[in-house]
Simulated scan of single mutants.
Amino acid sequence: MDYLPVNRANWNARVPIHVGSDFYDVAGFKAGRNPLRPFELAEVGDVAGRRLAHLQCHFGLDTLSWARLGAEVTGLDFSDAAIAQARAIAAECGIPARFVTADVHDAVEALGRTYDIVYTGLGALVWLPDLTRWAETVAALLAPGGFLYLAEFHPFADIMDDATGTTVTYDYFDRGPHVWEEPHTYTGEGVLEHQTSVQFQHGLGEVVSAVAAAGLRVEFVHEHDRTYFQRFGTLVADGAEHRLPEGAPRIPLMYSLRASSDSGAPPAVDRATSSSAPTA
């Protein structure tokens, strides 16, 4: 299966559903709500006056939130429908931002500049088959002294049973590709016109190794015992966060990684092929 056009059709179909969903609450965003997670704000730090690229930005709410905090932002996504919505929301809110339609591995040519921060939000890496090329692209986008910040769902959680999150059910080392036929998105609203998607699983060691091999210095990898959706039936909501019940053994549900560019000469990127998909 040529997964890239399949995934693009799937994500283009998601856009109108997501824009109108309670999950994304676009009206709340327009009124000033910041959808960035508290740990992201703390770990990224002050972005005022810094150039930030958001890869796989979907329709840009996180991107525009960094702009509201003072960053000079560029969002990139392979979904033209998502980028059109991002531009429309930016214009309506009067937020200065640049949005570009391109595959993530074409980002160096598509964006044509380097950045102080490359940010990638939740649910991005599962759409990429080759993390080595992704990490090389990130390194090539970073200005000397800049850094990558990645927040992701923890791959360990994906091997546990969906009902309780207590029993190992799936193979941690099964990288895929995994083909899914799902009528609904994670927002639970609407029916997709294009229901097929292709996804790839990546272990934490694979992610860290790809980033290090691209010449970036890993500053930290933090594992978190909370997530932001009902990943398992037993999770307990605590505001926007979801955690395992009090007293239950905890497992990592999310992780965050920060890695810096200490060199002015990031590795060259082989762009013979390309592949990407967006995130929220």
Rank of each mutant, 00 (worst) to 15 (best):
M1Q: 11
V6F: 04
V6E: 11
I17C: 08
V19M: 02
Y24L: 15
P35L: 05
L36R: 09
R37T: 10
V44I: 15
G45M: 07
H54D: 15
H54E: 09
L64R: 00
R68S: 05
E72L: 11
I83T: 04
R87C: 09
E92N: 00
G94M: 08
A97F: 06
R98T: 14
G112E: 04
I117P: 00
V126L: 13
L128K: 00
A140C: 09
L141Q: 11
P144R: 06
H154R: 02
Y170I: 01
D174S: 08
P177Q: 06
V179A: 09
W180D: 14
E181S: 12
P183S: 11
T185K: 02
E189H: 11
G190Y: 10
L192E: 04
Q199K: 13
F200R: 01
F200H: 12
S209K: 11
V211S: 00
A212W: 04
A213P: 04
A214L: 08
V236W: 07
D238F: 02
A240D: 14
R243E: 11
G247F: 07
A248H: 13
R250N: 13
I251N: 06
M254D: 03
R258S: 08
S260Y: 06
S261N: 14
G264E: 12
D270Y: 10
S274R: 15
S274H: 15
S276A: 14
